[in-house]
């Protein structure tokens, strides 16, 4: 079975083809063509088996010079866990000051990532 994908690793957006076969209920990638880089090839092998994404959002800040702090996952998470992670992000709140890289939530929705702050928020 051939799968065609657009690589999301970089702005090149390579159109990649993967030769895939199912073995014992799991998908296995036999061959990848069309990727301009090694990273892209690795991404395709992962994408076919279990797509991973980095997501970004905002967390409510109390007493800050901005009402929200931007956050992201510090490592990619399974695509199908995104909405569960978002539920926790929406409930979270943090008190200013907030620094870049500060962990706001650990292992949201049972994933192995952290939700980290991506901007500085000073006290108001």
């Amino acid at each position: 079975m051939r799968k065609t994908l657009v690589c999301v690793i970089c702005p090149n957006g390579c159109h990649v083809e993967a030769e895939v076969q199912e073995r014992g209920g799991r998908l296995e990638v036999l061959e990848v063509t069309g990727a301009l880089c090694k990273k892209g090839e690795r991404w395709v092998r992962q994408e076919v088996v279990e797509p991973l994404r980095t997501i970004s959002s905002s967390v409510l800040v109390e007493g800050g010079d901005f009402p929200l702090v931007s956050v992201r996952t510090d490592s990619p998470i399974p695509l199908d866990s995104i909405f569960r992670v978002m539920d926790e992000v929406k409930r979270a709140r943090v008190r200013a000051p907030v620094s870049i890289g500060q962990v706001i939530i650990s292992n949201p929705a049972g994933t192995s990532c952290n939700i980290i702050a991506t901007r500085m928020v000073n006290p108001a």
Partner: peptide, 12 residues
């Protein structure tokens, strides 16, 4: 837009 954004912002 960039192809990667079509993929991860719309198709996903």
């Amino acid at each position: 837009g960039l192809p990667r954004n079509i993929k991860q912002c719309l198709e996903d």
